[in-house]
Each structure stands twice: as C-alpha cells, then as structure tokens.
Design a protein around this nucleic acid. Sequence first.
DNA 1: GCCAGAAACTGATCCACATCAGTTTCATCA
DNA 2: TGATGAAACTGATGTGGATCAGTTTCTGGC
Lengths: 242, 242
Amino acid sequence: MPLNNPLVRKLGAFVALSDEDLATLDRLHQRRRKFKAGVDLVYQGQADQAAYILAKGWVCSYKLLPNGGRQIIDFQVPGDFLGLRSVLFRTADHNIEPVTPVEASEVVLTDLLDAFATTPRLATAVLWAASRDEAMVVEHLVGLGRRDALERTAHYLLEFGARLMLVGLGTKEGYACPLSQYMFADALGLSAVHVNRVLRQLREMGLLTFQRGRVTIHDFDRLVELAGFDMAYLDHEGPLLK
Amino acid sequence: MPLNNPLVRKLGAFVALSDEDLATLDRLHQRRRKFKAGVDLVYQGQADQAAYILAKGWVCSYKLLPNGGRQIIDFQVPGDFLGLRSVLFRTADHNIEPVTPVEASEVVLTDLLDAFATTPRLATAVLWAASRDEAMVVEHLVGLGRRDALERTAHYLLEFGARLMLVGLGTKEGYACPLSQYMFADALGLSAVHVNRVLRQLREMGLLTFQRGRVTIHDFDRLVELAGFDMAYLDHEGPLLK
DNA sequence: GCCAGAAACTGATCCACATCAGTTTCATCA
DNA sequence: TGATGAAACTGATGTGGATCAGTTTCTGGC
C-alpha cells in the first residue's frame, strides 16, 4: 500500500501503524467505485446503504429542509469515511453528494469490525479519526451559533487547511479547493451574495484569496487570530501513540 | 437493576437486552458520584478525565470563544453518556457543566471496552445510542444554519421532548425542563432577550408554554409542522433489534 | 413578611446579513 | 469566434434579531 494513500497518512498521524495494520487496511480497500459529480450517492431516508473510504475527490453531506433551504453539514476529503454513522443507524439521515468526480472504496461493516478485532491499534486509530471528525462538526456548530460571517468563514477555511495538511493535500500557504461560493454559503449558513462579500473583505485585508479553485493564505498568523482558531489538535508532529 | 434506570430504558428502545446484558450494564454503574450545579466537571483542554453515565439531573456541554461568547453544544439528560469523545481523544475540547445537581456513574474506558467484548449486543446498543446523539448534534447544526429563531426554538424543544420520552421523563403533553432562558439563548445562538420574545410568540400562538421549569405542549401537531420536525427516529414502538 | 438576587420580561434603536435585481467574468463547445 | 450557461460579483433596499437600558416577577433566606 503506497504511503501517499490519504487514509494511511491520516491514521498514521494518530497511531504508528505496523505492517500488519497496513495490510489489514489494504484489505478494506477492495471494491473501488467511481461516482459522477453532482449525483447524490446517498439519500435522506435510504436504508442499508454501504459505507465508503474516500480515495479521490471531494463530497459533501447535507440536509434539506421543508422550507426549501439546505445546510451542508460537512465536506469529506480523501482519507475520510463516508456514511459510517448512517450504517450504524441503519438509515441515512442526510444526503451525500460528490462535489467533484469521486473514487471511493466500499466498506462492509462486518469487514471493518473484523479488522478491529484482529488489529486493535487500527481500531484505536479509526476511533481517533472519528472523534476528530466529530470535533470538527462541533466546531462548525459553534461557528454557526456564535461567530459572525467574517470569523466564521476564516475559521472554516483554516479548518479545511488543517485537515488537508493531515492527508498531505495542503500547506500553510494554501490548498486546492473545488467548492463554489454557493456551496460555501450552504455550509456557513449565509447567502451566496454575502459569502462573496466576505471573501472580498478577507482578500482586501490581505489575509487570504479564494479564487479559481484555490485557497491562498497570505497571512496565516493574522488569520488564525481573526478566526480565533485553536491549533491544539493540529500542532503535533508524528503519531500521538507510538 | 431497576427497569426505571434511564440508560436501560434508552438502550432497551434500540436492542432487546438479555439478563446478561443487564448484569454487565449494572457492573458499569459502580463509583456513583454527585456534582453541584454550576461547577464544571470537565474543562476545555483538560487531559485524561473520566467518562460518565448520567443518572440524575441535567448537564450541558459548551465551548467558550475568544470573543467572549459561549455556544452550548448539547444538553445531556439521564441515560446519556458524558465525555465519551473526550476520553477517546484524550483531551476535552469542551466544558461540561451541571445545570442541576447531578448524579453520575464514572465509567473507565477499559471497563466499557471489556463489556463490549463480552456482550456484543450491548456494544450495538451503545453505538446506536451514540449515533442518535450525533444525529441530534447534526440536527442542531442544521437549525443554527438554516432555521429562523421561531422554527429553531420549536424544533429544539420538540427534540428535547423526544429524547426525554425515550427515557420515560416526558410525554407529548410536556416535560420538566430546568433550563433558564439564558441557557436556551446560548444553545440556540440567540440573545436571551430574543428567546424570551420567541417563547412568548409560541405561547400566544397556542403551541407551547415554557414556564417555571416546565414545557407544556398545547398543540403537538401544529408545532411539529411549524418546526419541520422529522419524527422518523422517534416513531418506533419496542426495540428495533429483537 | 421583607429583602436580595436571579430570572423573566419589555420598548426603542441599531446593524449584520438577506433579498432583489441585476452586470461581469470565465469556461466550454458548436 | 461568437453563443451559452454557470459562477462570480455588485449596489440598493429590507428585516430579523442584537443591543441597550431598563422594569417586573419569582424564589429562597432570615
């Protein structure tokens, strides 16, 4: 299994993985499937669908509301699990839409549980990664509740940078980001019009540029300060558990 | 173990529990501890603290922001786990504050994992419950992003009703709710002033009254409609897994 | 039965962000 | 090379909810 596999990179950041762990992880990556951008791969209310490990491309999970609005809960990037919770809960409570063309490995729940039983370190790593994902959803919630549009946008863009760095797809200088301002609006709970204005403001403040599918960070430190970004869970070098 | 134990009731709603499961569950309920209202039992950044099963009283988990605001992420009611994610992640990323005087059983992580290993049905039930909790946080996020104050408040109050019914502490007619309007404000991302106005509006619309620690629902159906509340995961009678 | 402190409640004013109604830029392909 | 459609961008106007500055109602303690 190549070391530039995003899942391996991510889990490796939490737990030092043995050859056996890597082999087990490799076995999970069977049944590779491809999906077109814009065609949902899971629908709200759908029962007993599969879980996936995202290998290439971006997807978003969102909910539609009776009043017509939609709220994007989270974006998934390579190395992330898709629909783990829905599998446990047996019914999907949200939609999943590929933002770009996507490649993902289907994971059968029993395979995953078997893998956990044989290689407990792997289970630890996956739980760790899942906790981190959940922590990010919580941070998103906090932003929607108590940060104004500018802080919120800055924070979200920084958080993206953090998770992309973890899988080797970004640096403190920036990263490729295939999202439209409309999607950002639905994630940040703002109108697309206002997202546009906020991005302009960030640009004019010399903090960050988001243009043509690329986020470029001009002043990381000032951005962190503006956003009130907590770098605690990003600041470690090498695995936390040796 | 008495059948009115809230955790047993909650898990029993997901999975039919055997005597052995119940006995294992009972063993987890050792080291019962009491906490005073208003004195945080976990702080942001605190390392290696315990997890708890809440037996009596209400607590809330919240985050403080650099700009002085606070966002309540979730309230926990009897039968809920406290700080499971923080334990996995090794460091608490949020505070936990008892809203009322609280009784909770300390749970050591290894005990819980042992219990899972010996009684897999129990593990399923706990995972199920955890998924449901996560789904509720997601629903909260959606509310903050895309529901106006009235829908949001109505939805939140209904969701509370749902989870309290699950542990036998509420009905469609109402429930005891020891939260101040200030706390509601911090949970709903509103000002306390506005929460007050919204509650008045709900009262004047003849939908619901929230006074002196009690939520009384006057018109359940119209409330569900106003809030766009999805009753799917509430609508089952008896355990999903026999 | 009185007092202190907290929580509930209110009206007036303000502003962050939504909405409306466009124009401009960019990418694609006939 | 011009046509077409999506995404990016803009100014004007409207509004939901914040903020300020209180008053009123509860609750528990003496």
